[in-house]
Nucleic acid binder design. Sequence first.
DNA 1: TTGATTTTCGAATGAACATTCTATTTGTTG
DNA 2: CAACAAATAGAATGTTCATTCGAAAATCAA
Lengths: 206, 206
Amino acid sequence: MEQKPIPMTGAEKRRTARISQILDAAAHCFVEMGFHRAGMAKIAARAKMSPGHIYHYFESKEAIIAAIVDRESARAAERFAEFDAVDSTELASVMTERAVQSIAEKTDILQSVLNMEMLAECQRNPEIACIIHKHDRYVRDQLTHLIRDKLGLDLAEARTDMMMVQFSGLANRLLRNPDLDLQNMVVLMRQTMMAILSPTLGHEAK
Amino acid sequence: MEQKPIPMTGAEKRRTARISQILDAAAHCFVEMGFHRAGMAKIAARAKMSPGHIYHYFESKEAIIAAIVDRESARAAERFAEFDAVDSTELASVMTERAVQSIAEKTDILQSVLNMEMLAECQRNPEIACIIHKHDRYVRDQLTHLIRDKLGLDLAEARTDMMMVQFSGLANRLLRNPDLDLQNMVVLMRQTMMAILSPTLGHEAK
DNA sequence: TTGATTTTCGAATGAACATTCTATTTGTTG
DNA sequence: CAACAAATAGAATGTTCATTCGAAAATCAA
């Protein structure tokens, strides 16, 4: 989203370094054990500091969870922002490639696990819900603008959501079906995305 | 899947009643607090029995989680089995309606939360993974048979997975975007599903 | 260097939790 | 009804965990 081009003092740099040390450790533990079985002791050990010290940077474990959700959501949003620069005619292809390719990597399976955890938490914790909805709205706005103004299509909001259905649906599918044949899937996925971005969708010839 | 037409004695009936009492209570608590923050005390209270007594029916809390995952997966599989009886020409429509309608209900939002929790756990606990993959394979086999043998389409496995991408993707989307306009979505979703089930998909006219 | 400030540690605390165990109640059967 | 088995309760146990706190170490200012 908006950014800080403000330079940082040494102390501030240190502080943000420590914070991302903690977040990296927390993310790792959360993937491995889930939000609520990952103990502060484990997180602290992985971040190479004492448990007590974490409380100089975060008010509570909940605050760490919120920060993780925020960071991961922001990263996902960033990834979507790349589509902005893509040529209109190739959008479906590029998005398909990115969806499939990013998912074929181990790191993104882990990312998916974190996403599941986040979405579950989202229905219980209003603060988490707020963070997730904020980032989702941002991504949607970007994509809707692309579809409406660059591609000149109607039903832009609905098409946006349909595109995003493909992304999260694919991630979900890969967790449930470990034998998924990506080779064949990618062909159908590309055509499906192209169909979603075709002017005739939503205007059925009867 | 296969079933037991065997009649039950009074004692057995009681036993299964108690067990589903526990599972209902557990499911409720798991949705509300997640697998690992839901304490046995809370589950016991909701099931109207003592914590200790639960251990007459389940070896451990892990066993309850496994049982919940199994039950919920089996229920999802049952719901998919209904599509078996649907007329070929209407499959896409019926599946769309079912996906959208089932998701528009509050209960299915809660079901989605449980699904997220399950999928996250699936990547950490091999026993859970096994249960989930088993049920997913069952659903896929049903649907693939439908697509290949009733609709006479090629690429049946890939089309199956694409259909399932739509289902889980839609559930996911609704959690992330609470403002989702189902009215417009349903139109695009139906056409997308029809495209996935059209013989021309996968055989692009260049 | 000295004093002040910040960073860091790790033990102490208290709550929550899964599980076990013993005792009590309920139900069944001869 | 008596004796036995099954069901149930709930307190006790030992562990794990988030959080707090006082002190030690490092950093900085003068």
